[in-house]
């Protein structure tokens, strides 16, 4: 009888120690993780973005995204644009005529729209539904023009993968995590007056 009571007591003690250890472990893990979260910043979410000053418009963005249609699109900083008649981001290097004929356009999907503003200026806008993010216009604009066309991850399309597939394939390491409340790295935040 007393032997059984001993066993019972031992079991009870064992269970108590076990529970204490479990609670301590749980508190430890929870505390450590919470500490990591608050150590710097408020534990805000991150999203992926392209640093346009590093981007070389290699074309990997168009094909390495996990989405069938890449979340990367050409973005236009209108405040930087020269509004050229001969836009090297819009026209083929040797256009037959400076009009919106398909044979003159650089964009393989016809995603850039050209509208007349006033002599001699034209405005160029991106049709995101057609843009695949190949960066061909970005190269054309950067090579000769002001560089107002550049690639950005469009966050209404991005899946926010934990590891961005395009970032792995980016030859210039232009992808980086940015805070989700400042999700774009635009070339020019405000047009200078």
């Amino acid at each position: 009888m007393s032997h059984q009571q001993d066993i019972k007591r031992i079991m009870h003690r064992r269970a108590f120690v076990g529970n204490a250890l479990r609670v301590a472990g749980a508190l430890g893990i929870g505390g450590a993780v919470a500490g990591l979260t608050v150590r710097k910043g408020e534990g805000r979410p991150w999203v992926w973005q392209i640093d346009p000053s590093k981007c070389i418009a290699c074309g990997n963005c168009a094909t390495h995204c996990v989405l069938d249609e890449s979340a990367v699109k050409c973005t236009h900083s209108f405040g930087m644009c020269g509004y050229c008649d001969l836009c090297t981001g819009y026209f083929h290097p040797e256009p037959i005529a400076l009009n919106s004929g398909a044979e003159n356009q650089l964009c393989p999907t016809g995603a850039i729209r050209r509208t007349f503003v006033e002599d001699p200026y034209f405005e160029y806008t991106i049709d995101e539904r057609l843009c695949i993010g190949c960066g061909k216009c970005v190269k054309g604009c950067n090579t000769f023009g002001n560089g107002s066309l550049f690639l950005q991850v469009r966050h209404d399309r991005c899946q926010h993968c934990n590891e961005c597939s395009i970032a792995i394939a980016c030859p210039s390491q232009a992808y980086r995590r940015v805070p989700a409340d400042q999700p774009y790295l635009l070339k020019l935040r405000e047009a200078k007056g």
Partner: peptide, 27 residues
Amino acid sequence: ERFPPPDFSNHQLPVTTVPPPQFAANP
């Protein structure tokens, strides 16, 4: 320093759209 856009007589520059991140669910 960036080069300014042309001084249009009457044309408002469009604003570059910046759609905010769409997360599948509120955290």
